[in-house]
Structure formats: C-alpha cells, structure tokens
Nucleic acid binder design. Structure first.
Lengths: 225, 225
DNA sequence: CAATAAATAATAGCATTACTATCATTATTA
DNA sequence: TAATAATGATAGTAATGCTATTATTTATTG
C-alpha cells in the first residue's frame, strides 16, 4: 500500500498553487533538489528555470521569491512531520513510548515507503530542513511571515509535542521550550555530527542511535516525576 | 577601571587586519550595526561603504566578502564570550556555581562596563549572534571554513563548558552535546521569546530569568549525580 | 624635509541577480 | 470552435558582487 498524502498548504505561501500543475510540481521537486545541491545562498530562480526546462518568469508566477519557496518547502516538511507524528502515535497509550517515538521520528533518516508524497521527497525535505531550516525564520520578514501564519505548522508540531510532555508530567512548567529544544537540537546535532563533530560526542558512524539516546535522556531527566 | 581587551583573531578571517587602521575599525563597527539594522541578506558592501563614508573597493581590501565579515564578527563574539567565561569563573571552586555563571553569561543582556572592546559593541555583537549566528556555519563553505579553523572559538568555548560539566559529573557521557545544546538554545530561545513566543513558555517580560531557569533545570537534571 | 611607499578615493566596468513587462504560442474548457 | 488560461520567448532595469585602474592623500623612513 502506498498512501499518497496531500498536505493543505497556507495560501500565502504561493502566488499560484504549485500542486495544481505539472510545472508547479516540477518547480517544487527540482527546487528542493537544487537548493540542497547549491545551498540556499547560491540558489537562484534562473538556475532553477534552466534546471527545470522553463523560464524565470514562469517560476515567478508560482512563488514571489526564493524565500517564499523556501518557506513553502520547510512548511511542507513541518506539516508532513506532524502528520507522521499523529500517524505513529495512533493507538499508543503510554506517554513515555509516545515521547520516544517522536524523538525517533525527528532524528531518523526518513525512508518511509508507506507514507509518501507524490512530488516532494521526504529525504530531500529532511536534508533541506537541516541545512536551511533556520533561514526560514531568521529574517527581517519574520513578523509579517508570522502574521501570515506561515509558522503555524511548526507551532502546531511543537504544541502537540508539548502536550505529550505534559501528559507524561503534568507539573512540568516548560513543555513548549523543551519541545522546541528537542526539535531544534535534533536537527542541529545531526548537522554538527557531520560538520562540526567537536561540538558533539558522536563518532562518525552511520546510524544516529547516540543522538537519539542523548535527546531521550535529556528529555526524560528534565521531566522526571 | 576599564579593561580594553584585544582579541587575537584568526588571520584567515580578513585580507587586511581591520584592527590596524581607523578605516578598518570603522568598517567593523558600522558593519555590525548595519547588519543588525538591515539583516544579513539585505546587507551589502555598497551600503556599508556609503554608511561609512568610504568605497566598496576599500572594504574589499579588508574582507573577501560579506560572509567573511560575518564570520569575523561572530568569531569575535565567541572569543569574547570565552574570555568573559574565563574571567567570571576565576576563583570559583564550586562546579555548580560555575555552570550557573556560564548560563547567566549566555542569556544575560550584555552590559559589562569593565570588560570592553574599543571598537565592537558587546550589545551589538550579541544581537548579531542571535539573529545571524547560525548563518555563519549553515553554508556550503563550512568544510573549508572549518579547515581554516574559523570555528575554533566556538569549539573552545564548548570544550571549556563541557569540562565544567564533567567536573560536576565525571560520569556524564554527553558533555559536548549538552554544552552545545545550552549554547545554541540560549540564543534560540531569546529569539523565539521575542519572535515566535508560542515555541516557548516565556511571557514578554523584560528580563530573562525564566530562560535562565529553564536552561539551568535542563542542564542540572541531565547531569544529576 | 624630500622621497618613497602604502592606503584610500574615485571611477569604471562586467557578469549575475532579482525581478517586471510584453507578446506569442500552446493547452484546456466552456 | 471560441474563449480562457498557462506557458514560453524575449527584453529590460536596477541592484549586487565583484575586479581593475588611476589619482590622491597619508604615513614612513632615509
């Protein structure tokens, strides 16, 4: 079985909905790849146009600028991740197990073959988040972007996470801060492990069990009853 | 008494040492202000030249490009912070007190009147770090930059921090990861509190005692003996 | 103090970026 | 089949991210 999941995206993210045309999907699919290849700074709509066999002008009909395209992609990822969390937590009763499940979802390389989107690769989106994720909010347009509710997916995920934290320990006072700490550091530590390993204690092994272990012990010691 | 501290900067950061001329200092001083004002993406050497009453060409004689200027400034800040840590920890014996002191230094708005640099404002550098800090490493040039040892100041600070953690609890296995987590989140949470408060549990009050409290409890519960 | 060197200013130029606009052409849909 | 919408082709413009050249000022040192 393959579930073709469709995520409803905030309309402020685009000028024309890229999901509704072959070109739109191509722009998104090639866009994420090209940003991953070049890095966001070196990435341009011109290059994406050439890469996708279309023109700059056509891309501008879908996205106002490259920052909005990045927002679209990151936003998609947070939505997707929340969806995965909901899916994976279904039928789980034990808050401890729920929390461990969330951490695994945050850290594990994404290779889910059941859940899948028809045009955005999970793996590419994950890499994008790790390398470019914080550039989505570290801008002067954050107030406006926030007003446009572009960060809702991230906040929703954080809120869902923090609820499970409070389920585990209702007296813990910093559930949101703790949730965003785990969210942020899951990705930062993956980056550090690869690029600045001195900032971590993780050897360059293929799996990320140590990161999971670190985040788990950090989380559970913080909320110990 | 005012201590005029001078930080030795990695020579790879610049083409010509900006500390050695009035123009160089002006470029750095105005540069940090202008990046803070415009955001790094909107910041250009042209604008800085106009702002500083000089020319683009002159700025290019000091810094290869704006990313290297950012690296210079961030690097300066990490160096400065490590210096402050060393200074503040001097004569302290109790590892617990040492750790609390470090967290305060990370979170507190910087207004130190004793320690001061003649040309970089501590407050401006702190704001720069919060808004633009991660852009220093989230680039495709990280491998090269790392080889040039541009991240040494950050690693040194992290190492110093992690040593105190192990002093407190010699059996704790993730001292570097924990140190970088506290370092990163101190600044992220300050940013979130201001710009995406839903990701935190901190009301919009002027002081940051709650952030300090959160980080302290996170740290000490993780390394509890 | 003059001579020389070094730093800066002034100016120009060039390829690329980040768009906007126009018009022709090809699909789609009514 | 006519009308509408989407895309392609092409052009253009101001700004960016540089590099180069020459003139002028400032510093140094013989």
């Amino acid at each position: 079985m393959e579930l073709d999941i469709r995520i409803k995206m905030n309309e402020k993210l685009y000028l024309r909905n890229p999901e509704e045309s072959a070109l739109g999907k191509k722009i998104v699919r090639n866009g994420i790849q090209l940003i991953n290849k070049l890095g966001f700074e070196e990435f341009t709509f011109k290059k994406l146009a050439t890469d996708s066999g279309t023109t700059e002008a056509s891309i501008y009909r879908y996205f106002e600028n490259k920052h909005r395209l990045l927002m679209y992609l990151i936003s998609w990822y947070w939505n997707y991740l929340e969806y995965k969390v909901v899916f994976s937590l279904n039928n789980l009763k034990d808050p401890e197990l729920k929390l461990k499940t969330i951490i695994k979802l945050l850290v594990e390389d994404h290779q889910n073959k059941d859940l899948n989107s028809d045009y955005i690769s999970e793996k590419e989106a994950y890499r994008l988040l790790i390398w470019e994720g914080s550039k989505a909010y570290l801008t002067r347009s954050i107030a406006k972007d926030n007003k446009d509710r572009l960060f809702k997916p991230y906040k929703d995920l954080c809120e869902r996470f923090s609820k499970v934290i409070r389920e585990y320990n209702p007296t813990y006072k910093f559930s949101h801060s703790l949730a965003s700490t785990i969210l942020e550091m899951a990705h930062s530590l993956k980056f550090f492990k690869q690029n600045l390993p001195a900032l971590t204690d993780f050897p360059k092994e293929p799996d990320d069990k140590k990161i999971v272990l670190f985040l788990e012990t950090l989380l559970f010691s913080a909320i110990a009853k």
